[in-house]
């Protein structure tokens, strides 16, 4: 056949070129959305951020010197509590999975369970903690909120710890065992120390994720106008629920503004933590 049809090649190249253009447009669209969200948060929130805003506790609308300080403190308390509850077991579990459970059946079950746990919707976690902590004790508390966030953080830290420890070459383990160390000592003093940047990054990323969660706190720590002094027995003010309350449950424009200010604070804190983590730890998988 002497005649080669030109059309098919042209069509194929056209398809290829249009897909490429479409991908570029899609990427720009995704980045545009992110830019829109960040710009919206910034432009609406920056009006409210001033020294008064950050120092004073929240009050009903109309009273002077209104701020979100109690929510900031509450959020810090609740998140710190969540980290305190979830980090030790998760690190230990990650060590188990990486050192002792690499191909065992129990290890595989645990990994499967961790993946399942990561997929549970956060509001279901809140519901569950409500059922086991709030109902029996009869009061909402910051502690219950911490436990709910800890349940969300646990599988994330578990998985990242295991991933980090698995990346450390076995030769390090073998050489420390050859020196006569016990497995425990080798793991804690050598391996964990070698991977400490990655471990810390994993924890920080999980904290960043938990700090922005609203749904689990809705029924556990709820919301209050007071300083978070009764962490174990009283509802604790926190930023995400404050944003929810101020933005949707109030008719005043000024209150909306305060909600945006709080949103700005939360967003940039979390994004800052994410960028910081990425800068100090270059994940070789994603390079």
């Amino acid at each position: 056949m002497k005649q080669f049809r030109k059309k098919p090649i042209f069509r194929r190249k056209l398809l290829d070129m249009s897909v490429r253009v479409f991908s570029l447009l899609t990427l720009c669209f995704a980045l545009f959305c992110m830019g829109w969200i960040l710009w919206a948060t910034f432009s609406h929130g920056i009006k409210s951020i001033n020294w008064d805003f950050l120092i004073n506790p929240s009050k009903p609308w109309g009273l002077p010197r209104n701020g979100i300080a109690n929510a900031i403190l509450g959020s810090l308390l609740v998140t710190a509590g969540a980290a305190a509850i979830s980090v030790p077991p998760a690190i230990l579990g990650g060590i188990y999975l990486a050192e002792f459970g690499r191909n065992t059946r129990l290890g595989n079950y645990l990994r499967f369970g961790a993946n399942i746990m990561m997929g549970i919707p956060s509001i279901i976690t809140g519901l569950f903690i409500y059922a086991i902590l709030v109902v029996p004790t009869g009061n909402f508390s910051g502690f219950a909120g911490s436990v709910a966030l800890a349940v969300i953080m646990f599988p994330i830290i578990l998985r990242t710890t295991e991933d980090i420890l698995l990346m450390i070459p076995d030769s390090l383990r073998e050489s420390s065992l050859a020196l006569g160390m016990s497995r425990a000592r080798a793991t804690l003093k050598i391996i964990c120390r070698a991977g400490r940047t990655g471990l810390v990054t994993g924890i920080l990323l999980a904290v960043a994720r938990a700090a922005g969660e609203t749904a689990p706190l809705l029924f556990t720590a709820m919301w209050s106008d007071a300083w978070p002094t009764h962490y174990f027995t009283q509802p604790t003010a926190n930023l995400p629920v404050l944003i929810n309350e101020y933005a949707t449950n109030s008719p005043y424009e000024g209150v909306h503004s305060m909600g945006w200010g709080a949103a700005l604070l939360v967003t940039f804190a979390i994004l800052g933590m994410n960028i910081f983590c990425r800068l100090i730890f270059k994940d070789p998988k994603h390079d």
């Binding site: 990427l27 995704a30 980045l31 959305c33 992110m34 829109w36 969200i37 960040l38 919206a40 948060t41 609406h44 960043a208 994720r209 700090a211 922005g212 969660e213 609203t214 749904a215 995400p240 944003i243 929810n244 933005a247 949707t248 909600g259 945006w260 949103a263 939360v266 967003t267 979390i270 994004l271 994410n274 960028i275 990425r278 994603h286």
Partner: peptide
């Protein structure tokens, strides 16, 4: 660019809600 797209995942969901609503 990859990191920019990944940052989309870091934005808390309530911020998405606010942006969506307003």
């Amino acid at each position: 660019l990859s990191y920019g797209v990944d940052l989309l995942a870091a934005i808390p969901s309530i911020i998405y809600g606010l942006w969506g609503l307003f």
